[in-house]
């Protein structure tokens, strides 16, 4: 099984001198293609930092991060942007939809950026996410749950190799959160997409193929 994401001896420290905080200390991780992995940890433990490093958004001190066969340590800003456009899909806790674009335009936005826009697939996604009737609306006219479904749809419509989701259901009630996560995992599985899910919830984490816990900069497999 090929690897969507490989992390080896990853180190990241914020600050310098006595105020320095090491959030990642020789961390190792692998997410095989088509598999889901839950990343848990206390608040401030560095989960989001790890996610941002995996997306090529945040620089790191040392180690290796290989994203779909590309070592991002060597990639410049342009190459990292290309990877984010074509290989990675990001789902933010606060959705981060483009407010000036309609739901339809938001949904297809990343797919069009990556050059993999398939209108039929987008329409099918909209149906399955239950947002087909909202296509002409704007983000500000949607509820939180609806916005989150659009954000997930935007990510999946681009058929990324790896989905990085940061508390994707953190703003939703339990029932809606479960439904959204079910859908995201199902669609990811169908497309053979790997999923790295940051969550506080052990209940959600247990639904992934594997789980790692971040504590004191180390990634541990919980017993």
């Amino acid at each position: 099984m090929t690897s969507a994401l490989t992390i080896e001896r990853l180190c990241k420290t914020f600050g310098k001198g006595p105020d320095a905080v090491q959030v990642l200390d020789n961390a190792n991780l692998e997410v095989p293609q088509g598999q889901s992995l839950a990343l848990t940890g206390e608040s401030g433990s560095g989960k989001s930092t790890l996610l941002h490093i995996c997306a090529g958004l945040e620089p790191f001190d040392s180690g290796k991060v290989v994203l779909a066969g590309h070592d991002i340590a060597d990639a410049d800003d342009h190459a990292r942007a290309t990877l984010r456009r074509g290989t990675v899909g990001l789902v933010f806790q606060q959705f981060n939809l483009v407010p000036s674009l309609s739901v339809a335009a938001n949904l297809s936005f990343q797919a069009r950026l990556s050059g993999r826009h398939d209108p039929d697939f987008v329409a099918e996604l909209a149906q399955r996410l239950g947002i087909a009737q909202l296509m002409s609306r704007y983000p500000e006219q949607l509820s939180g749950g609806q916005q989150q479904r659009v954000a997930i749809g935007r990510c999946l419509a681009a058929r990324p190799r790896l989905v990085l989701a940061d508390e994707p259901t953190g703003n939703l009630d339990e029932a809606t959160g479960d439904a959204v996560l079910d859908l995201m995992m199902e669609l990811a599985a169908q497309a053979g997409t790997a999923l790295l899910l940051v969550t506080h919830s052990t209940r959600l984490a247990s639904r992934c193929n594997a789980r790692v816990h971040l504590r004191a900069g180390k990634l541990q497999v919980p017993v």
């Binding site: 800003d77 942007a81 456009r85 933010f92 939809l97 936005f109 990343q110 950026l113 990556s114």
Partner: peptide, 15 residues
């Protein structure tokens, strides 16, 4: 706030 998500989606700050 409006531009950071676009950067995260793959548009460089230069662009």
């Amino acid at each position: 706030v409006q531009l950071a998500p676009l950067w995260a989606l793959g548009l460089t700050t230069r662009r």
